[in-house]
């Protein structure tokens, strides 16, 4: 299994990178954990590959005004093990630790995973629950896209061919917020059959904030706002959680594949939503 021929560039700065991408014909290589296997199977055959792997600016972790800025090139391992990330945004760190395996976590990147938008990837659930923002840069401009507009469909995001993701902007978690990511693993690939990320904060005996992101169930990850609405204001009892979790698949067209039917996915999504919320509470 061997990729087709391509031209290769390895810019040293973001500016160089977006200059190379300006014609919209090149494909961005981050860690390569999604792209290179596809190229080997020849399901992907870019003529020009722009490797972002050596742009130091893209591997920074900074805290700024209540937000955590994670460089797009941070590996899953870095996200999972950074003390700052674990403290300020534990959900993304926990989710990162569930991705793939040790070697994939050493090489795969946050931005690469987000851009690939695999319907069964782990990160998107957390990014939805965190209401992440994505900074997209092109030659002459940049924009920040909310996660709700970022994931468009299976393998499809708002990233244009001439853009790169430079960072993901996540909220610094308020004290008292509990988080959890729970997934039913597809045994072969380790991807999520269904994965649910939850953030919950209680205040005065009631749920003051609930955010739930779901991956694996639909063509792209989404925020289960129905669950959130039912949970917020409730006492967060087991019955409250169960009732809220039952709304996770409302209005969702569930995926069906070799590994799980859409009915089963819906059911598991409800179970895992309840579990993630319970664990977060």
């Amino acid at each position: 299994m061997i990729p087709q021929e391509f031209n290769y560039s390895r810019p040293g700065t973001v500016q160089e990178a977006v200059d190379l991408l300006a014609d919209g014909e090149a494909k961005v290589l981050a860690g390569g954990m999604s792209l290179i296997p596809l190229m080997k199977l020849r399901l992907s055959a870019p003529e020009h590959v722009v490797d972002l792997g050596r742009i130091p600016d893209l591997s920074r972790i900074t805290e700024n005004g209540g937000s955590l800025h994670l460089g797009a090139l941070l590996t899953h391992h870095q996200v999972a093990t950074s003390a700052l990330v674990q403290e300020k945004c534990p959900l993304i760190a926990e989710t990162a630790s569930h991705i793939g395996d040790a070697q994939v976590r050493n090489m795969g990147t946050l931005g690469g995973s987000a851009a690939h938008a695999d319907p069964a990837a782990d990160y998107p659930a957390a990014l939805c629950a965190l209401e992440a923002k994505v900074r997209l840069v092109r030659r002459d401009s940049e924009r920040v896209v909310g996660i709700g507009d970022f994931f468009v469909d299976a393998l499809t995001t708002a990233v244009e061919p001439e853009e790169i993701i430079t960072e993901l902007i996540l909220p610094v978690e308020e004290a008292g917020t509990g988080v959890s990511y729970q997934k039913l693993r597809q045994p072969a690939s380790g991807f999520a059959i269904v994965g649910v990320a939850a953030r919950v904060r209680k205040d005065g005996g009631r749920v003051a904030m609930a955010r739930v992101g779901v991956t694996g169930l639909a063509a792209s990850a989404y925020r289960a706002t129905g669950v959130e609405a039912l949970l917020e204001g409730s006492e967060g009892s087991q019955a409250d959680v169960a009732a809220a979790a039952a709304a996770v698949d409302e209005g969702i067209e569930a995926i069906s594949d070799l590994h799980a039917s859409s009915d089963y996915r819906r059911h598991v999504a409800r179970v895992y939503t309840a579990r993630a919320i319970q664990a977060a509470l």
Binding site: A120, A154, Q186, A219, D257
Partner: peptide, 13 residues
């Protein structure tokens, strides 16, 4: 052979 899990989603798409 390798894209089975994406087939349903992508055809709908």
């Amino acid at each position: 052979a390798v894209g089975q899990r994406l087939m349903d989603t992508t055809s709908k798409m």
